[in-house]
Amino acid sequence: MTYLAHERYCAEIALQVEQLRGLVTSGADLSTTVPTCPEWSLEQLVRHMGGALRWAGTMVRNRAQEMLPLDQVPLGGGPEEKGDPAALDAWLAQTGELIVGALRETGPDAKVWTWAGPASSGFWARRMAHEITIHRADAALTVGAPYDVAPDIAADGLDEWLELVQFVQRTGAREWPAELRVPGRSIHLHATDADPALNAEWLVEMGEDGVTWRRGHEKATVALRGPLTSVLLAFYHRLPLDTPGLEVVGEREVLELWLRNSSFG
Rank of each mutant, 00 (worst) to 15 (best):
T221S: 05
V211H: 10
L53C: 14
K111N: 13
R21E: 15
L239M: 08
P79S: 13
L233N: 07
Q16W: 01
W213R: 09
A220K: 00
E256D: 14
R215S: 07
A137L: 13
E80T: 14
P118V: 12
K111P: 02
G101L: 03
E201Q: 10
W258D: 01
R104P: 05
S230K: 11
T221D: 02
S31Y: 01
V17G: 10
Y147W: 07
R225H: 10
P244R: 10
W113Y: 14
Y147G: 12
A145E: 04
G57Y: 01
S120L: 12
L15M: 13
G122R: 11
V149Y: 10
M1K: 06
G51K: 11
C37T: 11
G77D: 15
D138E: 10
R238F: 00
A56T: 06
R126K: 09
G184V: 02
T25A: 12
L42W: 08
Q94S: 12
V248K: 09
V254L: 10
D109G: 13
F167N: 15
D71T: 13
P146W: 05
E66S: 15
Q16Y: 00
V168Q: 13
M1N: 04
G77A: 08
W202I: 02
L103W: 01
M128R: 06
P108V: 02
K111R: 15
E201Y: 00
D209Q: 15
V24E: 07
K111I: 11
E247Q: 06
N261Q: 09
E208V: 10
T229L: 00
L257D: 08
V248N: 05
L189A: 07
R54T: 09
A173W: 03
I13M: 02
I134H: 10
W115E: 09
L203R: 11
A5F: 01
R63Y: 04
R126P: 03
P227Q: 06
W258V: 13
P79I: 05
G117N: 05
T32K: 12
T2V: 11
T106A: 13
Y236S: 05
R260D: 14
L92I: 13
